[in-house]
Every structure is written in C-alpha cells, then in structure tokens.
C-alpha cells in the first residue's frame, strides 16, 4: 500500500468530514442551546439539497443556489422554531423529539409528492467540473472547493462567536441560560436565531452534497445518524467538538475503506462506542453536562 494512496484516502476522508461538520454543527448548536435533539435535521439537509436544485433551475446558476438555498431553508427553520418548537419549551424533553421526528417524515413525504420518489439530477457547476493532479493522484476540483467553503464558514462562525456581542451571548447562553435570563437577555429570541442558523448550516451541507450525491428524498436518512455520531464523539453542544469529530469520523471512515471497505459505515459507530467507553462526555464535552 503506497503513500500516495493513503494521502488520497486522507483527502477523501477530509471532504467527507467537511460535509459531516456542516450537518453536525447545526445539530450540536441546537442541542447545546435549546436542549432540542432535532430529529428532522437529516430531512432539512435533504430540503437544503432540493432547495438548491429549485434555485439552480430557476436561476440557472449553482452560485445563487449556494447562497439562496441555505438562507431560505434557514428561514424555514425560523418558522419551525417559532410555531412548532417554541410551544413545547416547557413540556417534557420527549415532546420536541417526537415533534421533530414526525416533522422529518412529513418533510420527506412532501418532497416525494412535489418532486417524485426517484430523485432529481444536479450537475457539478461548470467551473468546478473535472479533476486536478495533486501529485498524489487526480482529485475532483469540486471536492477541493467543498473543503474551502467549509473552512470559510468555520472561520466566519469563529469570528462571529468570538468577536461579536451576539457571539458572546450565544456562548454564555450555552453555558448557563438561567443567569443570562437573570441578566435580562431575551433567551427566546436567541434560541429563535440559533435554530435558524443551525438549520441554515445543514441546508448548506445539503447544497454542497448535491453535486456529489444523488438528490433524492431519503438522502438525509444516514446524515441524521452521522450528525448524531459526530455530536456524541465531539461532546454534546460543543462546537469545536463537532468540527474535530466530524473530520475525525471522515478520516476513520476513509482509512477503514482502504483496509476493510465493507466495514466503512460501521467504523464510525465503533469509534463512537470507543469514545463513549473511554470518555463518556465526548472529546470536548463537559463532564456532567
């Protein structure tokens, strides 16, 4: 097994991880802030891909799709928070789980009715078609672009969280919502926005995945499980954890593919089990949280 091949595997794994990070980030932020396990997350990833297809068909441009679709689906997220999740905040924790679980089914069915069962073609944008020789082998240009976009989003998120007043409130709110309320911060407004951003991120993941994967109503099913695994490994509610764990899972899946390809999917669950055994709170989770 030569070095070039291993380098290619690592790069493939990094792309895989980058898409995982986009979905897991939203999942973990929503869980950390709102305490809601969003079972509709995979479905909203799929909605993001379909929104991208719809925008691209209207405008004829992938770039508009990349910009507009996450914003539109993020706005849908705001509506979901306002009218479906918010009434359940003072109810038992099971209620939002049941609600989002059902919502996921509804969204998948709606897409089946509107766009059909079989999925819909979505081409790689013309400017990013093709492969480039990296010295270790040929790699699709589009996948390199995905890494770049995810890196950019992460940088923006970091700036937003570390350097703005809003980011300060989010970080503090994640740590102790009660104190924030005592200090006069309107947590409801915060949760509203956080939910929208989280959904917008997973939708962006969906748009980015659309040229690589077949866009179909079930494309979010495994994504939900993956987001869950990454969140558990990274530590529930930890943003850094989601990023590190997402990349880690991508690499583990990729390297497993090299030695035991049929075990590729299961390897991420094995990693999760291992982390739970050694460090139950996750890599970056706070004990007892």
């Amino acid at each position: 097994m030569d070095v070039q091949l291993i380098a290619m595997q690592l790069l493939s794994g990094a792309v895989l991880g980058a898409v995982l990070v986009m979905t897991a980030l939203g999942f973990t932020i929503i869980f950390g802030m709102l305490g809601v396990v969003n079972f509709a997350h995979g479905a909203l990833f799929m909605i993001g891909a379909y929104a991208g297809v719809a925008v691209a068909m209207q405008t004829g441009s992938f770039w508009w799709a990349l910009l507009v679709a996450p914003l539109a689906v993020g706005a849908l997220g705001l509506l979901i928070e306002r009218f479906l999740i918010r009434p359940l905040y003072n109810r038992p924790a099971d209620d939002p789980i049941l609600l989002t679980f059902g919502l996921g089914y509804v969204l998948v069915e709606v897409v089946r009715i509107v766009f059909g069962n079989d999925g819909i073609p979505f081409s790689t944008p013309a400017a990013l078609v093709g492969v480039v020789n990296l010295g270790i082998g040929y790699f699709p240009i589009y996948r390199l672009f995905v890494i770049a976009v995810v890196a950019l989003i992460l940088a923006l998120l970091w700036l937003g969280l570390e350097k703005t007043r809003f980011g300060l409130i989010v970080r503090a709110g994640a740590r102790d919502p009660q104190i924030m309320r005592v200090l006069g911060v309107d947590m409801r407004r915060l949760w509203f926005l956080v939910f929208g951003v989280g959904i917008g991120l997973t939708a962006l993941g969906g748009v980015l995945a659309a040229p690589m994967r077949n866009v179909n109503p079930e494309m979010g099913a495994l994504v939900l499980a993956e987001a869950f695994v990454v969140t558990v490994i990274g530590g529930l509610g930890s943003i850094v954890g989601a990023v590190v764990a997402g990349i880690l899972v991508g690499l583990v899946v990729s390297l497993t593919s090299l030695v035991a390809p049929e075990m590729a999917t299961i390897s991420m669950f094995a990693l999760m089990a291992l982390v739970l055994l050694i460090r139950p709170q996750g890599l970056f989770g706070r004990a007892g949280a």
Binding site: D2, M8, V253, S257, L258, A264
Partner: peptide, 12 residues
Amino acid sequence: PDYSTFLPRINA
C-alpha cells in the same frame, strides 16, 4: 451515500 473513499483504490 459516498464512494469517494473506495475510488482511489480502484483507480490504483
């Protein structure tokens, strides 16, 4: 859903 991790080996 993703086959990118199998393809480099096939290419090789």
